[in-house]
C-alpha cells in the first residue's frame, strides 16, 4: 500500500484556493498565464504558491527567471520564495536534463511532490498543468480535490476542438471551472464564444508581440500588455474571491 496519497489533503490544508491552469493544446499560454497570475495575485497582496506540474517540460522557472534556487529540507521540502511566490518545480531536481517520464512515472513524481512539499499558509496555489487530459490533469483531479480549473484557449479551430474535450471531461467529473480566457486574440471573432457556450468567458488577451522580451524578467513581465490585461481580467472575475474557512 502506497501511503503518500493519504497526506496530500493535510499538505494542502493551509491553502484557501487551488487554481489549475489548463487547456487543450501546447503553446497557448498556460505557463505564461499561470506565472503571471501568480505574480499578479502576489502583487495584489495575496499569499501565493506556484506549482509547475508540467514534469517533462517545466517552463515557469524560465518565465519568472528563476535560477540557482533549491528547496529547503525541513520535515519535507519547503519551496523557496521568489518574487513573493512560493515556487515548486521538478526542475530543482532535474536541472537542464531531459526527464522522459511515462504515465506511471508522472503519477509517481506528482504524488511525491504533493506528499512532501510543505506549503506555507497561502491564499492561492496556482498549478501549471501540461496540455490536455493526460496523466497530470487527471492526477490533479484525483489528488487535489479542491482544485478549480482556469481554462486557456485561442480561437484556433485546433485549440478549440481539444479544449471542448477538456471542458466536457471536467464537467462530467463535476470539477469546478472558473472560466475560460481566450489568449493571442488577433482579430474580432465569436468563434470561442460560440464554441464554448456553457462556460463563462472571463476575458480576451490580445496577441502580445513583445512578450518574448519580458520572459525571465519579472518587472518587464508585469509591465507587458499581457500582464496588464490579465490583471484586468483577474480583477473583474471570481478569481479573487476567497472562500471563508
Amino acid at each position: 500500500m502506497d501511503p503518500r496519497s493519504n497526506i496530500i489533503d493535510k499538505r494542502l490544508a493551509g491553502i484557501k484556493r487551488v487554481i489549475a491552469v489548463s487547456g487543450g493544446k501546447g503553446g497557448i499560454g498556460k505557463s505564461l498565464t499561470a506565472s503571471v497570475l501568480a505574480l499578479t495575485l502576489s502583487r495584489l497582496g495575496f499569499r501565493v504558491g506556484l506549482l509547475d506540474l508540467d514534469l517533462s517540460a517545466p517552463s515557469t522557472h524560465v518565465i519568472l527567471g528563476i535560477e540557482g534556487l533549491y528547496p529547503k529540507e525541513e520535515k519535507g521540502i519547503v519551496p523557496p520564495e521568489i518574487c513573493g511566490i512560493e515556487f515548486m518545480s521538478i526542475v530543482y531536481f532535474t536541472g537542464d536534463n531531459p526527464s522522459p517520464l511515462r504515465g506511471i512515472d508522472i503519477s509517481n513524481a506528482m504524488l511525491e511532490l504533493l506528499a512532501v512539499t510543505r506549503w506555507g499558509s497561502l491564499d492561492f496555489l496556482i498549478v501549471d498543468t501540461p496540455p490536455g487530459i493526460g496523466d497530470a490533469t487527471m492526477d490533479v483531479i484525483r489528488w487535489m480535490k479542491r482544485a478549480e480549473f482556469l481554462v486557456m484557449t485561442t480561437s484556433s479551430k485546433v485549440a478549440l476542438e481539444t479544449v471542448k474535450k477538456v471542458i466536457k471531461m471536467l464537467t462530467e467529473l463535476n470539477v469546478p471551472i472558473i472560466g475560460i480566457i481566450e489568449n493571442m486574440k488577433m482579430e474580432e471573432s465569436r468563434l470561442v464564444k460560440e464554441a464554448l457556450k456553457d462556460v463563462p468567458i472571463l476575458g480576451e488577451v490580445g496577441f502580445d508581440e513583445k512578450i518574448e522580451d519580458s520572459i525571465g524578467d519579472v518587472n518587464k513581465l508585469l509591465e507587458s500588455d499581457f500582464a496588464v490585461k490579465m490583471k484586468e481580467i483577474v480583477s473583474n472575475s471570481s478569481i479573487l474571491k476567497l472562500q471563508l474557512k
Partner: peptide
Amino acid sequence: EAIHFAPEVAHAYIRCPSCKSPDFE
C-alpha cells in the same frame, strides 16, 4: 540527492547500461 527527493528523476540521470536508453521501468 535529487533521486532521493523524487525517485522518478532517475530518468534524468540513469541510462540503460546496455543500450543507453532513458526509457526504463
